[in-house]
Simulated assay, not measured.
Amino acid sequence: MLSFLIRRLGGAVLVLAIVAVLVFLLTRLASGDPVALLLGDQATAADIAAARVQYGLDQPLFTQFVLWIGQVLRGNLGQSIFLQMPVLHALAERAEPTAFLALFSVAIAAGIGVPCGMAAAVWRGSRGDQIVSTVAMLGASIPSFWFGLILIQVFAVHLGWFPASGYGDPGAPMGDRVQHLLLPSIVLGVLNSALVIRFTRASVLDILGEDYVRTARAKGLAESVVLIKHVLRNALVPIVTVLGLTLALMIGGTVVTETVFNLPGVGNLVVRAVLRRDYPVIQGTLLVIAAIYVFINLAIDLLYTVVDPRIRLGGSS
């Protein structure tokens, strides 16, 4: 186990180093000058030059990169050019809606995808299997922004059951904020459940053909006991994998949904930073998202030993 952790942590550091280099280079290659955007059309060339010196943008790219990496290693992601605050502070202010949105969405995706995938596998080849598979394929094809707008029109505008956008007032109770997150969570949860259905169906189909499942049925065990205790439990490894990866992707991929529902989350922060060419925010946010993605993958590997005790990481017994 220890050797496995050392290898994976070493790989995580390498991945994050590559991400840091790519993010830094890509932000600098993009057209547009953040200082010119910040100061506006009325700024003189002298004003722009002075601001570039203030933010260190007058130095060679290699020097800028070394200085930025030095800050990152000290736990400092830099200072936002437009927000005039540390990037970590800006991320902390916007982390809550994104984190809750991702967690609620994965819960909805699992609540829909796992039972439907199991039902499709048990009913293999039947009309029910075809319906579930068709719905899953349709769900994977629907654009999230279109689905979000439809839900807003029906449940927020016509029925008035949910808020159409926003995250509530700054001092709003948690229940009010959860209400603002329900519609966007349903959007992401329903659409991502399509992938969970497909993985669950395939995994359960593999287990249904095993000898121990036939033996359990031959012993006269109830079908629900066979499906939950013997089938689902042994099919959990790929299901846990897809749910973990879905969570990681949602944390970094809620940009469209947050924009449609005007949520002040990390995705909204990234969109504004890209439009403003706010280099520190873009670099810091993408690096943090990459770190979360890497360590969620590590957590999934560790969770395998809990889901299936037969798995031993790193080849140890």
Rank of each mutant, 00 (worst) to 15 (best):
R7Y: 10
R8E: 11
G11L: 13
G11R: 01
A12K: 02
V13S: 09
L14I: 14
L14S: 08
L16Y: 12
A17I: 11
I18L: 15
I18N: 08
L22R: 02
V23K: 00
L25V: 15
L26N: 08
L26G: 11
L29K: 12
A30C: 02
G32Q: 05
G32N: 07
D33Q: 05
L38R: 01
Q42R: 14
Q42L: 13
A43D: 02
A43C: 11
A45H: 12
A46P: 09
I48M: 07
A50P: 02
V53G: 03
Q54N: 11
L57C: 07
D58W: 03
D58V: 15
Q64M: 06
W68N: 01
I69M: 15
V72N: 03
V72H: 05
N76R: 08
N76V: 09
Q79T: 10
Q84N: 14
M85H: 06
V87D: 00
L88V: 12
H89P: 00
E93K: 14
E96W: 11
E96Y: 10
T98N: 05
A99K: 02
L101G: 01
A102C: 09
F104I: 13
A107P: 01
A110I: 04
A110V: 09
G111H: 07
G113W: 08
C116R: 00
R124F: 08
R127A: 15
R127C: 08
S133C: 07
S133M: 11
T134W: 08
S141L: 10
F145V: 04
G148M: 08
Q153A: 14
L159Y: 15
P163Y: 10
P163A: 10
A164Y: 05
G166E: 13
G175Q: 12
R177I: 04
R177A: 06
Q179D: 10
L181P: 00
L183S: 09
I186N: 04
V187T: 11
V190R: 03
V190C: 05
V190M: 04
N192G: 13
I197V: 15
R201Y: 05
A202L: 08
S203M: 05
S203F: 02
S203D: 08
L205D: 00
L208G: 06
G209L: 08
E210N: 14
V213G: 02
T215H: 14
R217L: 15
K219T: 13
G220V: 11
L221M: 14
A222K: 15
A222R: 15
E223R: 13
S224H: 12
V225T: 14
L227S: 01
L227Q: 04
K229C: 10
K229P: 03
V231Q: 06
L232G: 08
R233E: 11
V237D: 00
T241K: 04
L243T: 04
G244S: 11
L245I: 13
G253Q: 04
G253L: 04
L263Q: 14
V266E: 02
N268Q: 14
V270K: 02
R272Y: 05
A273H: 03
A273W: 01
L275V: 05
R276C: 00
R277K: 12
Y279W: 07
Y279I: 03
L287F: 12
L287T: 05
V288G: 06
I289E: 00
I289A: 10
A290P: 07
A290T: 07
I292V: 15
V294P: 02
F295S: 06
F295L: 14
A299R: 06
I300L: 15
D301E: 15
Y304D: 02
T305W: 06
P309S: 11
R310E: 11
I311C: 09
I311R: 06
R312C: 03
G314E: 07
S317L: 14
